[in-house]
Computed example of a mutant assay.
Amino acid sequence: MDCGGKNKSKFLAARNNKIYMDLKLIIREHALQFLPAKSLFKFRGVCRDWRLMISTPFFAHNQSLSYSSVSGMFFQSHGDPPTFISTDPESCGVPDPALSFLPSPIDIVASSNGLLCCQAKTGDRAYYICNPVTKQWKKLPKPSMEHGLEPAAVLIFKPSLLNFVAEYKLICAFRSNDFDDATEFEIYSSKDDAWKVSGEINFSAKKLIAKSGVCVNDVVYWQSSHGSILVYDMTKDRSQVIHGCYSGHGTLGEFNGKLCSASVNGRTLTVNVISNIYSNTMHMGSRAQLWTDKIRIPLITEMFNVSSYDLFPVLYAGSEIALVLSGRSIYRCDLKTTEVRFLVALPRPEQKGIPYVNSLVAL
């Protein structure tokens, strides 16, 4: 068989075209779902097939399972609408950062894997669950108890391979009306569309810090203003208070499936990981340690040159990165490579933010 001359050129052209077509198929079927929502909205313009596929509920479901990176943070000063600061404005973002599509002005109180929990500023101060990308939202029924002006709320949403309907829970720790200096818990379940007050009452917890809560393996943690951590185990319906191992400007997060506490001490970012939440209840003399010093990252000189503050709040800590604030500048600390670099500048000073994942999850 003669493959020379023109025949060879035609053979190579056909072969290259096949590789190109295979590459397009691979990207469409196996890569797109790992991209953030803003990028996917742009890619709908590539061709009709991509537009149709990205618009399907099945693709949205797969993307919510596949993409879990923190895409930025929502910030909100008192009395102002929220704003969104993206870790990568070209690929991650939301069309309406002020969330004006909701029926009333709101405060963002929690987030989880693409969903936000917001509370109305006025009226019955209703809770709303929404996806800021798709602008879908749901108003939750009125809770049985009063949660206060700054609820210590934690939203829990875990995308499930077999469940196309987003099922989530909202856990609120609130000061008891019946017992002085006691903390109670009320839980909303989307599966039941109802609130339930837990029978658990904690008499040791001090004032909790709003927007400080995280959930790790069905255990919820809140920072208190006194430096301790309130722990509520949803499976056992039990609570306890443990010592924090963080400064007032640190944050709680999840590091490889365990609770972590991240704070800046001197010129170093320190990430501690909890080893056993029950070690503080063991007998005296036990050598069990509650926290393990996991990671120490030296901060770069630039952070201290641009800031007139001595405090460097940690805005977020996860398995891969931590976000540290220096003045109005956010720096990204890679927990694997220990690289520290400037990320973005805020328009005004902030102290606390809500981390957000740019997901297509449907409500």
Results as ranks from 00 to 15, higher is better:
residue 1 M to L: 13
residue 11 F to V: 08
residue 11 F to R: 10
residue 17 N to Q: 08
residue 21 M to E: 15
residue 25 L to E: 13
residue 33 Q to F: 05
residue 36 P to M: 00
residue 37 A to K: 10
residue 43 F to Y: 05
residue 44 R to V: 05
residue 45 G to K: 08
residue 54 I to C: 07
residue 55 S to C: 03
residue 56 T to S: 15
residue 57 P to R: 03
residue 67 Y to I: 02
residue 72 G to D: 08
residue 75 F to P: 01
residue 80 D to F: 11
residue 92 C to I: 00
residue 93 G to T: 05
residue 95 P to D: 06
residue 96 D to M: 04
residue 106 I to W: 04
residue 107 D to K: 06
residue 108 I to P: 04
residue 109 V to L: 09
residue 109 V to E: 11
residue 110 A to K: 03
residue 114 G to T: 12
residue 121 K to E: 13
residue 126 A to L: 14
residue 131 N to P: 13
residue 133 V to I: 09
residue 144 S to E: 13
residue 145 M to C: 13
residue 156 I to F: 10
residue 157 F to W: 01
residue 157 F to G: 07
residue 162 L to N: 11
residue 169 K to W: 10
residue 170 L to P: 00
residue 174 F to M: 01
residue 174 F to W: 11
residue 180 D to M: 08
residue 182 A to Q: 01
residue 190 S to A: 11
residue 191 K to F: 09
residue 192 D to A: 10
residue 200 E to H: 00
residue 201 I to E: 07
residue 204 S to V: 01
residue 214 V to M: 03
residue 214 V to K: 06
residue 216 V to W: 00
residue 217 N to H: 03
residue 218 D to E: 09
residue 219 V to Y: 04
residue 220 V to D: 12
residue 221 Y to S: 04
residue 224 S to A: 08
residue 226 H to D: 15
residue 235 T to M: 10
residue 236 K to M: 13
residue 237 D to Q: 14
residue 243 H to R: 04
residue 244 G to K: 12
residue 248 G to W: 02
residue 248 G to M: 02
residue 253 G to V: 04
residue 254 E to F: 01
residue 256 N to G: 00
residue 257 G to A: 00
residue 258 K to H: 10
residue 261 S to E: 07
residue 270 T to Y: 09
residue 271 V to E: 07
residue 273 V to E: 06
residue 277 I to S: 05
residue 280 N to E: 11
residue 281 T to Q: 00
residue 285 G to C: 02
residue 286 S to Y: 01
residue 292 T to W: 07
residue 292 T to S: 09
residue 295 I to E: 04
residue 295 I to L: 04
residue 298 P to F: 07
residue 300 I to V: 15
residue 305 N to W: 03
residue 305 N to S: 05
residue 306 V to Q: 15
residue 308 S to H: 12
residue 308 S to L: 08
residue 310 D to C: 15
residue 311 L to D: 14
residue 312 F to G: 01
residue 313 P to H: 06
residue 332 R to G: 02
residue 340 V to Y: 07
residue 341 R to W: 06
residue 343 L to P: 07
residue 343 L to T: 06
residue 343 L to Y: 09
residue 349 P to V: 03
residue 350 E to M: 04
residue 354 I to A: 06
residue 354 I to M: 12
residue 357 V to M: 11
